[in-house]
Write a protein that binds this DNA or RNA. Structure first.
Lengths: 340, 340
DNA sequence: CTGAAAGCGCTTACAG
DNA sequence: CTGAAAGCGCTTACAG
């Protein structure tokens, strides 16, 4: 008896079996199933039929090993508990899934070092592409990225000059627009309340500052900044502190809606009339802001559209297709409600 | 000149190079790096040093192909925009990451068919393990699961009898506890407002029903159920409708905090005094409920602990270690605040 | 405790 | 447009 070949049965339908059933070589089968155009239409059809009949499912690991590229897209975002990013993710996912790509989500907690660690481990998986939030990262992360050559699109912000791909909006302009609105509605002692202090919050603060300076109403004492994470509770605390220290404040620009929502609740408890005595504006138009009492004026950011367009841009890069606009500014919308 | 071997240079440090540097065979290097105990301590140390010096990073694809198991855990949850699940995910992640496992997140949108599709595509990646939400799935999904033999732990609920692994709490008991509290505080016309109507919501309704029946106060007309997704806005609408149709309602059990929060806002707008005229209870103790005006009585569910324990249980299963308690009931806590 | 051989299931690169 | 050969980087299974 001759020795049987030492096989490790996996029970899996392989490309070879599909090829055999279709009467072609495995390479042709592979090409047909990946939709490469250099395959005869008739043969391709035969391969597809055979694959369907056998219930063939390509092995992602084998594919990744042979091609040195997985079918996964790594997405790094600061926080999952912020619906802002969830909206981006959902929209991106809706683009990736039909294209056959899976999304690997990494949460950085706004920490560049955490991001670097995640990047390192994700790059080991040779993702087909990367979606990163903003441009604020460690030098090491930057080098890892460059060395890997992995296509990458940046979310939420835009930056010109270095040819980086990005889909976002001008946080600075949005901050300026909010402040201008408060000025236009007659407010003069306008405070900025910022938490987390990630780059986008600081850009909004920059817009705020610019407008108030130009109008001659800038007072650095009215900027209340804390690196603590944003929350309803914190918004209430900061409003209370601000009004205690500066009773003449007549308008507050909260860098995020959850802070503003908490601020409104605190104003209510304190008996501070909004918007009569105090105007309040938030940012991002999060869930509930339209339902608040009073409803919250805010800035609507095109999160879903950012996710969708970024995914499309990345898919184009992954496929080596041309990208007409490497820097996409999707703008924002000032939503005026009862709180101003 | 002899033909050069056709190599596809990848620039990657391979296990072979590490083995060579350490003066051992690749198999020994492999075993040493995976922490298998059957390796001489001295050799193992030499391998680890070599790996570190060369900056060796194992190739997950090669590993998955050879071992027929990836280092990824697939997690299927209904929704990412519900912080409930985000808390579970974050806690699970914190267990998986140090163990060398990545989490692949799939969102089912409460749809068993979507879950089945996701399961199919995720199983193709041969995840080391699965985390699934609840027990409500299609027959096909059940079969896929069983056929794959992939270790699996269920989240949020428990079910006895079939030896399934789960970490959760009794949603029915929690619903009963809320209702009992409302009864104890003197309410008699107690309504249940449910949205989404996923299995866990229906279990809470069951607890509500049981307690009211026993007390002789059950009135099916006071159950307001809608499959629409939960939101602040919806909570407000449902409260308004309920009070219009049944002005004598004196207590409402909302199946989720976001509904209850919206309900409180609506009560405020309508001038309905809470808790004097109407007691309100939510579920899950979501962000903001403690800050609300009035602050919201609710049920605190041990989300983070569920994520943590489920991850630990799954890791044990993946490693073939014994699991002392396949069904972990982590309980809940009634949080009484101003709204009751 | 250690290793030589084979194999996991696919794709790349070279030919024709 | 199609294919035979080799290879991707690891681990399994069998020996000793």
């Amino acid at each position: 008896m001759s020795a049987l070949p030492r096989r490790r049965a996996t029970g899996r339908v392989t490309l070879n079996e599909v090829a055999e059933a279709a009467g072609v070589s495995p390479i042709t089968a592979s090409r047909a199933l990946r939709g490469q155009r250099s395959v005869d239409t008739v043969l391709a059809e035969r391969v597809r039929t055979a694959a369907a009949q056998l219930g063939y499912v390509p092995d992602p690991a084998a594919r990744a090993l042979a091609s040195q590229r997985s079918q996964q897209i790594a997405v790094l975002i600061p926080l999952l508990s912020n619906n802002l990013f969830v909206d981006v993710l959902e929209a991106a996912q809706a683009e990736f899934a039909p294209a056959g790509f899976q999304m690997l989500i990494g949460v950085t907690h706004y920490d560049p070092l955490e991001e670097e660690t995640l990047l390192r481990s994700h790059l080991a998986h040779r993702p087909a592409g990367l979606l990163l939030t903003g441009f604020d990262r460690t030098e090491a992360a930057r080098q890892l990225l460059a060395a890997s050559g992995t296509p990458c699109v940046h979310l939420m912000e835009n930056r010109s000059g270095d040819g980086a791909y990005s889909v976002g909006l001008s946080q600075t302009e949005a901050g300026a627009a909010v402040t201008r609105h408060l000025l236009d509605s007659g407010r003069r002692r306008i405070a900025f309340v910022g938490a987390q202090l990630d780059p986008r919050v600081m850009q909004r603060a920059e817009g705020y500052r610019r407008v108030l300076r130009q109008a001659g109403h800038w007072d650095p004492a009215l900027e209340l900044l804390t690196p603590a994470p944003s929350s309803l509770r914190l918004g209430g605390e900061l409003l209370q502190r601000l009004l205690a220290e500066h009773p003449d404040v007549d308008g507050i620009f909260f860098c995020n809606d959850d802070l503003a929502q908490g601020g409104l609740l605190a104003a209510w408890r304190l008996g501070v009339q909004v918007p009569q005595r105090l105007a309040v504006v938030g940012f991002n138009d999060l869930a509930g802001s339209d339902q608040w009492v009073p409803s919250l004026s805010t800035v609507r950011t095109p999160r879903a559209e950012i996710g969708r367009q970024a995914a499309r841009m990345l898919l184009a890069l992954v496929r080596g297709e041309p990208v007409p606009q490497p820097m996409l500014d999707l703008g924002f919308e000032l939503v005026l409600r009862q709180s101003t």
